[in-house]
Design a protein around this nucleic acid. Sequence first.
DNA 1: CTGAAAGCGCTTACAG
DNA 2: CTGAAAGCGCTTACAG
Lengths: 338, 338
Amino acid sequence: MASIKDVAAEAGVSVATVSRVLNDHPSVSPAARARVLAATESLGYRPNAVARSLRTDRTRTLGLVISDVLNPYFTALARSVEEAARTLGYSVIIGNADERPELQDHHVRTLLDRRIDGLLVSPTDGGSPLMLDTARSSTPMVFVDRWIPGVDVPVVRADGRAAVRDLVAHLHGIGHRRLAIIAGPAATTTGSERVEAFREALGAYGLPLPDDHIGQGDFQADSGRRATERFLALPEPPHVIFAADNLMALGALDAIRARGLSVPHDIGLAAFDDIPWFVHTDPPITAIAQPTGDLGRAAVQALVDLIEGRSPRSVTLPARLVVRRSCGESPTDQRSTT
Amino acid sequence: MASIKDVAAEAGVSVATVSRVLNDHPSVSPAARARVLAATESLGYRPNAVARSLRTDRTRTLGLVISDVLNPYFTALARSVEEAARTLGYSVIIGNADERPELQDHHVRTLLDRRIDGLLVSPTDGGSPLMLDTARSSTPMVFVDRWIPGVDVPVVRADGRAAVRDLVAHLHGIGHRRLAIIAGPAATTTGSERVEAFREALGAYGLPLPDDHIGQGDFQADSGRRATERFLALPEPPHVIFAADNLMALGALDAIRARGLSVPHDIGLAAFDDIPWFVHTDPPITAIAQPTGDLGRAAVQALVDLIEGRSPRSVTLPARLVVRRSCGESPTDQRSTT
DNA sequence: CTGAAAGCGCTTACAG
DNA sequence: CTGAAAGCGCTTACAG
């Protein structure tokens, strides 16, 4: 592959001049510039980003560690992150933690070794030593979706509290009283917050959230399946199950169907995170939608601000309830079902 | 961040010795090794991968350019690629082409600039000049899922021909005669092959595939919606629509529902690519499943073989039909509906 | 406007 | 077994 030396030789100038042309440095004569450009073209020269990064100590690359690529929510987030980063002249390298803390650490380490300019993380757990060290280090870092309490890092996330209240109001309005939740890992903020928001909203109606109505999941489908089986085996199964993410809702549907039961007739189902398929499931699923695109853009903006020496803002955006038919219909519900 | 010099100073040895310890070079005294390891530990030293890559001309990184991250099929593929690569000691950087050739080229260029060791591509089109140049260059490259005819690059893919024949047999058995397809871009192999396989299979039953029964899609949901609207506006709409991927099937469902029609009563639907949600849609969708995990692993194996000087094999794996209820039921169908 | 030179952080023949 | 030195491909003060 042609190097800057080859271009310099071909153009009859020094490598310094070639470098200046490539970096749009003002003080280059038009003649020299033209010869360099011609040589670049004819050799098909492309600067070696590795060498450039070593010299400048910048990679123009962002690392994004997401909890699970198989989760459409994170996939949509990753897409908007990449798009926003590209607009600002950055590439992004995605690491998939698969909801496993050790895999998350592996990716953080690899990304750091590659000297990415900044790190966007949706932590899978409460904070490994590596994650905590990184947050304390000089590496620019922003949490997105999930965060680690007590760590001084900007956070970009959605607040689902109001939407959860709306959900509970909706369920209560239909007449449901025994409500259960499949939670994410307590070590994640979204895992614990969604339970707390749910419990609080229930409390407003004087409804309890007994321990056997809290299923412990890990945000993946299998755990939704298992938690649902346990609910269905209860002497008095819940009227409605609220899954704290879309994959656990998928697992819940599997389990309900395997039991030969039907939604919403035998049991209701709602989910955190809205995905396109929820319109077409049997029945369409009531869900809480996050402004995924905005979250991705805001997260990139905060991280790039940090990298480029501006002060970043933490951002909290609202989520909203989308009512469909999976919890039954109340006569007072006038909402559309798409 | 500590560099190799700091470690050398701390351990009282030369940087050469530090490097040898880090790279498990045999000729290092146990005493020196111990001191280096201790220094590495106490400084929290991590070798700079950028510098190492520049020196060794290897990045131990694979590039993966996929057509669309929002497509669960590619997301599953990406996951298995990353896992297989990690096992072999490689990282992978994913580029999302979003089915746009210019974006695909952008990612290929960026990946090449970063000097990835090899490239895995599922081409979005028939081959841009850049893609063709890259294939001819010395950069190790493997096509996965889709490929570019006439280019001498190993291909790892699924052959859906037999499964498409099974699908048409199934449809014919139920009594459907007017069959339509939403195709992917003709410039992609999977775009044209699936139409050809479908046409051939229809031919075996003496059924035609008129032009107005071929919808031109681009593998994304919107195009499935538009193609379906056109089918439904025909004086004699098709009995069944076969979408050449899962996102266009999603779009088709949207359009069918918007018309107030129901599947399979008013019109049947089948899709290429099977995804978990197809079990829970209304109705469950008949689909052709690809061995995604095996494809990812085989692709990585072929690419790493190429990188490490072994001769890679092209691999073609079979896809298989999974019958559900979205095309109606024939009395002779004895298959399960999950 | 231009070039020679130093240096980013590593690895690796070479000499001892 | 060990170290001094060269060099990977760039960028950038410095001097002219």
